[in-house]
Design a protein around this nucleic acid. Structure first.
Lengths: 276, 276
DNA sequence: ACTGGTGTTCGATTGTGTTCAAACTCTGCC
DNA sequence: GGCAGAGTTTGAACACAATCGAACACCAGT
């Protein structure tokens, strides 16, 4: 069995049983306990399970199909690098608007939890991820778009426009100097645009493949963007053009000296935290 | 059993019995009394229980939700039966309000998908479940409550009150003839009450353990309920009292034709004791 | 040669059971 | 009421067991 495959099945087991022992998993999968520990460590790092002494538990998978998670694990490394770099750029931010898409979901996953942080988002996935942690989350509300599970429609736009935020962190289907930030669905674009209305700083996170791409619905022109975080694979010429427009472009993973070692807030055995 | 798991179950026991002895717990969990003491000490430190000489007490009112761990798996079968039976009672409904909790989530899971169905809910889990299928979902919006991932607060209440629905399907932490439908969190109760404001029919789904239980926040008095769907384990006397208030009680898993016409059909049910 | 995954060893950490003196509750007695 | 004594419960201390993580060695595929 492939390692990736096993990890997914381990996650399935944890989700199924809610709580499971390392020893049981090791026996069932015919591998050493050390391997299971390593699997669980990864799954915890990616926010899927919570490790405990002797095993692991989970809480969030109830809302998500495990199949959908497989998608997130793909290219996890690159996504994590971008997410962590972006997280560094948002230290101290008190109120944040978070957009939609897997890139933003990853950002949410690696966002260091702070009690004084408030997040407004139209994404059910982002809300679920942060809601289970210690972050104050506000979800837009309104119609739920089928495939992406995002809030759209007039009431969603109204909702996100009500809040003043320090920073907005959004993804993008397309990102070009000429066409700006673009999305695939115009209803999503409307909501995101609404969320950007009352923010001080717009941070775009996107892997290199999005550079130069143009999707149908324009969210904002490139000039309104404050900073873009991407990876090394981004097209250099497009970066050049964007930087000439006065936008800061950060390539994650290049300046590793700035990357702080992950503060592994291992779940305390206290297990149950009282709702704040 | 995981240490974490045991601690949660200990808490469950304390909450259930209101007061319990260390010796009893030690016997039931097959560990030494010292271990139980250590567990209780932690739970006390986190504010869940209060230790007494020889045992522990709690002020929490029958918190079924404290240890959702093993329970979800344990009652999975009953919940599915209830969910399916309730789904039968909602054929043809066009607009539906769905409440919160694992029971309602199960209902959503087994709800036959119809294109002409529209659902409004404050639960992120329910919205996620139905949103990925072919149902038109509207989510309430507003603050996201941490542990249960439900929308609460003024804007959530406002949102759910805007919609007119044919049927509302809700769960309950407690369900009694005297105290009506009760929930553990008053903010949840507010939102659910709002969702029931403009509905034609209120359908309550709850497994037998909820009968006779009273949680802190009242959602609605029992008289406003149209129909209750439960399973065979529900306390017969409580069912009797509820039916006398004119509420229809449907026992899922039994042939309903046996129950309706004759009194003796229910008389037989009286013999069924609720599991300790 | 390099990367990523795996198993093993071993010291460190965490959880558990036992012992025993101190603290506590209860009861009978004044 | 107050008090002594029996019986119970408690917590600290220790010993032991289980689990963990770091480090190293090995292997397979590139």
């Amino acid at each position: 069995m492939l390692a990736v495959e096993r990890r997914l099945k381990v996650l399935e087991r944890v989700a199924e049983d809610q709580a499971i022992e390392v020893s049981t998993l090791a026996r069932d999968f015919q591998v050493s306990e050390m391997t299971i520990r390593r699997d669980l460590r990864r799954l915890e790092r990616d926010g899927f399970v919570r490790r405990t002494y002797g095993g692991a538990t989970t809480h969030l998978v109830r809302t998500f199909e495990v199949g959908a998670l497989a998608r997130t694990l793909h290219h996890a490394k690159e996504k994590r690098i971008i997410a962590k770099r972006a997280a560094e750029l948002t230290v101290g931010v008190r109120a944040m608007f978070l957009g939609i898409g897997t890139t933003v979901e990853n950002f949410a996953r690696y966002l260091p939890v702070r009690e004084d942080l408030m997040v407004i988002t139209p994404s059910l996935a982002v809300a679920s991820l942060l809601g289970t942690r210690n972050v104050r989350v506000i979800i837009a509300g309104g119609q739920v778009r089928q495939d992406e599970l995002t809030c759209v429609g007039a009431s969603a736009v109204e909702a996100v426009r009500r809040y003043n935020t320090d920073t907005a962190v959004i993804g993008a289907a397309g990102l070009s100097a000429r066409r700006g930030i673009t999305e695939l669905d115009d209803r999503d674009a409307d909501v995101i645009r609404g969320g950007l209305e009352r923010t001080e700083r717009i941070l775009v996170i996107a892997d290199g493949s999005k550079f130069g791409a143009v999707a149908m619905s324009t969210v904002i022109p490139i000039e309104q963007v404050s900073t873009i975080v991407t990876d090394i694979s981004a097209d250099a010429e497009e970066i050049e053009r964007i930087e000439q427009a006065g936008i800061e472009v950060v390539i994650a993973g290049t300046d590793s000296s700035l990357l702080r070692p992950a503060e592994n807030g291992r779940a305390r055995l206290t297990d149950v935290r009282r709702p704040a």
